[in-house]
Computed example of a mutant assay.
Amino acid sequence: MSARSVRTLIIAGLSMVALAACTSNTPEAEKEDNAAAPQGVASGKNDEPGQKVRIGFSAPAADHGWMGAITKATQAEAKKYSDVELIVAEGTNDVNLQISQVETFINQKVDAIVLLPFDGAALTPVAIKAMEAGITVVNVDREFDSTFAARTTILGDNKGMGVSAGTYICKEMKGKKDAVIAEIAGIDSLPLTQARSQGFKEALADCGLKVSNRVAAEFTVESGEKAAANLLQAAPKLDAIWNHDDDQGVGVMAAIKNSGRKEFFVVGGAGSANVMRDIKSGTSLLRATVIYPSTQGADGVRLARLLVQKKALGDLVEVEVPRTIQLYAPVVTKDNVDQYLPTAFES
């Protein structure tokens, strides 16, 4: 991939190239052929100013590093386009208030809504109402219950996170069949946690390993420290730990430091900047982290703009924006950390 293409990616190098919405890697002759292409067909001019697009954005409260990064990246992306006006609702974990925010966007007759719902099921009816009003809805991260609630859905890959973490640990174990692997999950009742654990279990099984010790936290620093302390007390020997979330990982690493133990390594989850800096230092037990992109809202802005302007994704032959886009869950190590630090969030 050329340097010019990499520059346009939301997740440098490994996010779907389609999201770049341009064709800087298209040969010059092909660009000339596309100059007269009909509306909706890739023309290589997707980033040029076009029809004005008013986009409403609503997401949960930024009470978590990843969530805060979602909103920050979304606002930064909108500012890149002179033809985009982004209306940002205050982040909230109150479902009724978020429903009211979407109702306000409908009344304002925005062109599109980029919506990361606190509760996908609860926001489904009002999202359908927006679509029926002719407003393009882009669903981010937490899925609605109906395909009629959104034109396009952008997702991270929760199961893929587990697969990536497990595959990396398998590689690091180098055939050690008696390796003791531990897992510090997030909130067990959430489907995303269950998907991450399932992917991790399947990847380990592929190399003859299993999760020997497992505890669950609550995606917070305090819960991470408590869960890790309990794990370390119950497991006198460990070879590797996968922690689902880098925010709760701040507490996890505090508990590990307090224990004085160093016989294992740790793989993080989500891709925070502080974890990446620890990986880069080479002096931490943190050896890797698995990305869960905090750029999904920014991707949503790009896609909403394309949809309203009736454009296609520049690097696809398909003349319509896909209904579902799932972003990749790459593993960040000391070898590639510099590639991912620019888009990482602070825990």
Rank of each mutant, 00 (worst) to 15 (best):
G160T: 05
M161C: 12
M161T: 06
G162T: 08
G162R: 06
A165S: 11
G166H: 00
T167E: 11
Y168D: 05
Y168T: 02
Y168C: 04
Y168H: 13
I169Y: 00
I169C: 00
C170A: 06
C170T: 05
C170D: 04
K171W: 04
K171F: 05
K171C: 04
E172F: 05
M173L: 04
K174F: 03
K174A: 12
G175T: 04
K176H: 00
K176W: 00
K176Q: 01
K177W: 02
K177E: 07
K177M: 03
K177N: 00
D178N: 12
D178Y: 01
D178G: 01
A179P: 00
V180C: 05
V180I: 14
I181H: 01
I181Q: 01
E183C: 11
G186D: 02
G186M: 01
D188Y: 09
D188L: 11
S189M: 11
P191V: 11
P191I: 06
L192N: 14
L192W: 14
L192M: 14
T193F: 10
Q194N: 10
Q194K: 15
A195G: 03
R196A: 10
R196K: 15
R196E: 09
Q198D: 14
Q198Y: 08
G199H: 06
G199K: 07
F200Q: 10
K201F: 07
K201D: 15
K201G: 10
K201L: 13
E202T: 11
E202D: 15
L204K: 02
L204R: 01
A205D: 10
A205L: 08
D206Y: 07
D206H: 13
C207E: 06
L209G: 00
K210N: 09
R214F: 09
R214M: 12
V215K: 13
A217Y: 03
A217E: 02
A217V: 03
F219D: 11
T220R: 08
T220P: 08
T220H: 10
V221Q: 13
E222I: 13
S223D: 13
G224L: 05
G224N: 07
E225A: 15
E225F: 07
K226V: 14
K226T: 15
A227L: 12
A228S: 15
A228P: 09
A229G: 15
A229P: 09
L231N: 11
Q233E: 13
Q233F: 03
A235W: 10
K237P: 02
L238N: 08
I241N: 07
W242A: 04
W242K: 07
W242S: 02
N243G: 13
N243R: 01
N243W: 05
